[in-house]
């Protein structure tokens, strides 16, 4: 038992994963600190910024007491962090409602949109990427390469408005505003989010495809693939037994990175389609300067982003054949 434990601990992969996890948690702590300090660094202080310069001293004092602004900063940071971990983000300045209630449903909506997009975009991107890599330099590859370059250059709102002009103004197939409600059945919801979903798919598809193609081509150029080819192994076996296991790590990385990008990239698309998601809330709160809401939603976005990047790295380590079988 102890020997197995020792082997487990000494396994380089376990060590690396543990290290990466520790770095991830460290990053999150630093980010939470920065978010906290950022609001702290406001010229004047939060009370004056919200209530205005000529508020009565008593009102300012009451406001400060309510937000516990009279305690020293490091104590407030620790209590704030403790409350955040328990899911309590305080109250919104604009509406006075608890932020957790505002955010919960919207975050679910954002995840719903990003998740649906991922289900469409990831398989499609992998398929097209492999196709482009297998038929490298053919007309298909060139066509895909030019269209992805164009897609990368398009701002999200341009794609979105073209789709709206086409599918909702000219053809009247899908709504141009994706305001979903709590009690919509799933199919109606899916129909409502079709256009934002296509927009996001087009945006991440290009990136994912290009990176998948590059990852496979990289592996296909390595000496051991040439060796396999010289030995006369069938093309299918070369791809599935030799190339794919070694291209898996970069491909998984590509997927996770793009998922991270998706969760953050929804912001603009949500605003275009007036979709009730977290991104929309964040943008609204930034223009209203509702700082607690900005803090909370920024933190949630950051956690999702860091978490997905972390997953990408860990999966890349675990799926690397050279690391999995140590000498």
């Amino acid at each position: 038992m102890t020997r197995a434990m020792k082997r487990f601990i000494n396994n380089p992969i376990v060590k690396m994963v543990a290290q990466r996890l520790a770095i991830g948690i460290g990053t999150l702590l630093v980010i939470s600190g920065l978010i906290f300090v950022g609001v702290e660094a406001l010229p004047g202080d939060l009370a004056e910024a919200v209530l205005g310069q000529n508020a009565l001293p008593e009102t300012v004092a009451a406001f400060r007491a309510e937000l516990k602004l009279d305690l020293p900063a490091h104590i407030r940071y620790v209590t704030w962090l403790g409350e955040v971990v328990r899911g309590d983000f305080g109250n919104s300045l604009a509406s006075g409602k608890p932020i957790a209630d505002l955010i919960g449903w919207r975050f679910k909506n954002t995840l719903f949109l990003a998740g649906t997009t991922a289900l469409v975009a990831v398989p499609l991107a992998l398929f097209l990427g492999m196709l482009a890599a297998l038929y490298r330099d053919s007309w298909l590859d060139k066509l895909l390469s030019i269209s992805t370059l164009t897609a990368i250059s398009f701002p999200e709102f341009f794609v979105a408005y073209i789709l709206i002009t086409l599918f909702s103004v000219k053809l009247a197939l899908f709504p141009s505003i994706s305001s979903i409600t709590r009690d919509m059945p799933l199919l109606v919801k899916l129909h409502t989010i079709t256009l934002p979903c296509i927009t996001l798919t087009l945006v991440v598809l290009a990136h994912m495809m290009r990176m998948t193609r590059a990852a496979i081509i990289n592996v296909m150029d390595l000496p051991f693939i040439e060796m396999a080819r010289l030995k006369g192994i069938s093309k299918r076996r070369i791809i599935f037994n030799h190339a794919l296991p070694n291209a898996l790590a970069p491909i998984i990385n590509v997927i996770a990175l793009n998922l991270a990008y998706l969760v953050v990239g929804v912001v603009v698309v949500e605003v275009v389609f007036v979709y009730p998601g977290l991104g929309q809330l964040l943008v609204d709160s930034v223009s209203k300067r509702d700082l607690p809401v900005v803090q909370a939603s920024g933190l949630i976005f950051a956690i999702t982003y860091v978490g997905l990047n972390l997953t990408a790295d860990v999966l890349a380590m675990v799926s690397n054949p050279r690391l999995r079988h140590p000498q």
Binding site: I31, L34, V264, G265, V267, V283, G298, A302, Y305, N309
Partner: peptide, 9 residues
């Protein structure tokens, strides 16, 4: 480590 758009916002 920050998502750029969120950082800017």
């Amino acid at each position: 480590a920050f998502p750029p758009l969120i950082f800017a916002l």
